[in-house]
């Protein structure tokens, strides 16, 4: 039964991908990309990768669609036809694909218990993370503690991406003069939408906080929470108008927040060094090793969440406020 569901989802995924490559209208491609994301989230769920599915769900439908539309807004509505027949490119792609398929033949079978991946570090993560780190969801322990360096680098990458988008596109923060009531970017004609948005926004922010602080026990963590929080801000700005959003979350505040998140992460690592441990070794932070790990993971996840939220919102500002101002 589950196998059949997997196969069906995979078929849908292939159809969507093919349609995206064939369709030249970029708007349709964006819509299909939304479906692609929904399908891949379903596949991740059926493969038991709950945290990955959670990330896909947080990023895929909301932020990705919004950013693609905003980029589309700044460019043309159709993909340009290449002036030549890309036969060579097709050949290269087919050859690469064939080589990759040939390569997968040497891989262990799906679900093979004797595969090397299950015997390297995975047993230690699964069996001992409860005693060594603490959180019941060992994905969180791996991301925040065992692989703390990787996550630090990822956070820095997101921070850098946010900064570069802002540096390249710029945000025109129009101050004074314009009052909220004359904000033309609000959806005046959609009263129902505005009311429902106001109703839902508190729940979205609350759910983001739940994801942030419940990441030790269930799926989720700083990254997903930041993205959900940013989605809330984007919904606010889309329906209630840009001026109100800029008033609630000014650009300067977000820039400081993004920096503060990365500094919090790095600072936790440095604090561990000051207390006599290695960089990002949280065990020395508390009275016992477990308490230290708990505190360290809490701070680190907070740093990730804050940075992701601020960077995503800054990117959205940069993309969508460029033309309107």
């Amino acid at each position: 039964m589950e196998l059949f569901i997997d196969i069906t989802l995979l078929t849908f995924l292939c159809i969507t991908a093919l349609a995206i490559t064939v369709i030249r209208k970029l708007f349709c491609a964006v819509m299909l990309a939304g479906i692609f994301s929904l399908l891949s989230a379903c596949l991740f769920v059926s493969m038991d990768a709950v945290d990955v599915a959670f990330t896909e769900a947080a990023v895929g439908t909301g932020i990705a669609t919004v950013l693609m539309l905003a980029a589309l807004n700044l460019s043309h509505s159709r993909e340009k036809c290449p002036p030549y027949q890309p036969l060579l490119a097709l050949l290269v792609v087919c050859t690469t694909g064939a080589v990759l398929v040939y390569g997968t033949m040497d891989l262990p079978a799906f679900g093979d218990a004797t595969a090397p991946i299950h015997h390297h570090v995975a047993p230690r993560y699964i069996e001992q993370s409860q005693q060594e780190i603490g959180p019941p969801n060992f994905v969180t322990s791996i991301l925040a503690s065992y692989r703390g360096y990787d996550t630090l680098a990822e956070t820095v990458v997101i921070f850098t991406a946010g900064l570069s988008v802002v540096a390249l596109l710029g945000i025109r923060d129009r101050r004074g003069g314009q009052s909220i009531t004359t904000d033309r970017s609000a959806m005046k004609g959609y009263l129902v939408l505005r009311v429902v948005t106001k109703l839902l926004l508190p729940f979205i922010f609350l759910f983001a906080l739940y994801v942030q602080f419940h990441g030790d026990y269930g799926p989720g963590g700083g990254f997903q929470a930041g993205v959900i929080f940013a989605s809330g801000v984007i919904i606010h700005s889309l329906t209630l108008g840009r001026d109100r959003t800029l008033k609630a979350f000014p650009q300067r505040f977000l820039t400081i927040l993004a920096t503060a998140g990365v500094l919090l992460y790095g600072g936790t690592g440095l604090a561990a060094m000051v207390r006599g441990g290695n960089f990002l070794d949280y065990s020395v932070l508390g009275a016992t090793a477990l308490a230290g790990q708990h505190l360290g993971i809490f701070l680190v996840e907070l740093g990730v969440g804050v940075t992701v939220f601020a960077s995503m919102t800054l990117m959205y500002y940069a993309f969508s406020y460029r033309k309107e101002a």
Binding site: G189, L193, V196, L200
Partner: peptide, 20 residues
Amino acid sequence: IFLLITSPTSTHALAKAALN
């Protein structure tokens, strides 16, 4: 609850936008 709130809302907004 969330589905019952958001789904009719987006249907309504869609119909309105299409008509406009």
